[in-house]
């Protein structure tokens, strides 16, 4: 009777394929703008996937920038001590935020979902303050500049092309982890999303799955922070501003929360649109706001859901 659980579905494969095109782009163009937009997309996709994992269980997380900061600063501080090995740093950028998330998740996720939203919002505000208040460790308001580029199997990933390809690799890794997690616990996450009360009364330890999702989401966000620091070669508090949490939420909701294609396509579309604003990037948030209203009121599936609905009507 139990449905066979596949490790990855076609939506994950399409998402991975889309991201993988980032590897070949440098063969066709050297445009700084294209590189910059793609880099932003790769960072954004990872961060949005962190949001998406929690959204699978009807939880909205504002904590992404906080965990990004832990991942990013871990790498920057290690870089100061000449530790730049890509594998070690990837592991550290994932594991440290995840460890911080364990006690926090256990504490908050036993309570009503609302508490989660409020606490994660406050958490990213607090992380900002912490960054400013600990100049000895994080450089305070100056941040940590001159982070050395990462080394992969002895090669320094210093050139624009290699930085882009490394960011692409991190995005693929994050998508793999996210895909595996949400497929593996598909039944549990879906049950919590659809009817938490019923799931719990049937014996599902709901908070434990929420906490598990939260811990992995924190690790994924850490990878986003790593990718961001690696792109800028700087860890600065402004990179992890709490207001960026809203951007990642917008990417996910507007892209569509039904499949992992949502955060991927949503990030791509919105980062591209934001760049159209040019130097007036701050106005993009207004666009996000309007689009969120539209999605919630009129197009619940977001971009992906709308495409799917149109497709079904056509065929």
């Amino acid at each position: 009777m139990r449905k066979q659980i596949r490790l990855l579905g076609w939506t994950e494969l399409v998402a991975l394929l889309l991201l993988a095109t980032g590897f070949v782009v440098p063969m066709y163009t050297r445009s700084v703008l294209v590189y910059s937009v793609l880099n932003q997309i790769f960072v954004g996709v990872i961060a949005a996937e962190s949001v998406w994992i929690m959204l699978r269980m009807n939880l909205l997380s504002f904590a992404t920038p906080a965990f990004m900061a832990i991942g990013g600063y871990t790498v920057a501080i290690a870089g100061q001590h000449d530790i730049t090995d890509a594998f070690a740093m990837t592991a550290a950028a994932f594991i440290l935020p995840a460890l911080v998330a364990i006690p926090l998740g256990a504490l908050v996720l036993r309570l009503r979902g609302t508490y989660f939203v409020l606490v994660t919002f406050v958490l990213s505000q607090i992380m900002q303050l912490l960054l400013f208040e600990t100049p000895g460790l994080t450089g305070g308001s100056n941040g940590i500049a001159g982070v050395p580029p990462v080394t992969l199997l002895g090669t320094e990933m210093g050139s624009n092309r290699l930085v882009l390809q490394f960011a692409c690799g991190l995005a693929i890794l994050a998508t793999l982890i996210t895909g595996l997690l949400t497929r593996w616990f598909r039944q549990h996450f879906a049950a919590i999303e659809e009817n938490e009360i019923l799931a719990e009364s049937l014996g599902l330890v709901v908070w434990r799955y929420k906490a598990m999702g939260f811990v992995v989401a924190a690790g994924i966000a850490g990878l986003a922070g790593y990718s961001l620091v690696n792109m800028l070669l700087t860890a600065h508090p402004s990179s992890f501003d709490s207001s960026t949490a809203v951007d990642f939420i917008a990417y996910t909701i507007i892209g569509g929360r039904l499949s992992i294609l949502g955060p991927v396509l949503g990030t791509g579309a919105l980062v591209y649109a934001t760049n159209l604003f040019g130097t007036h990037g701050q106005y993009a948030q207004g666009l996000y706001g309007v689009l969120i209203l539209v999605v919630v009121l009129a197009a619940r599936g977001g971009i992906v859901g709308t495409i799917a609905a149109v497709w079904r009507r056509v065929s």
């Binding site: 009777m1 039944q187 049950a191």
Partner: peptide, 19 residues
């Protein structure tokens, strides 16, 4: 009170599994 968007067999599978 069921999981509305999935099949009858999936509903029962979840109950068995969560129990």
């Amino acid at each position: 009170n069921t999981f509305k968007n999935v099949s009858v067999s999936e509903n029962i599978a979840r109950a068995i599994r969560f129990g």
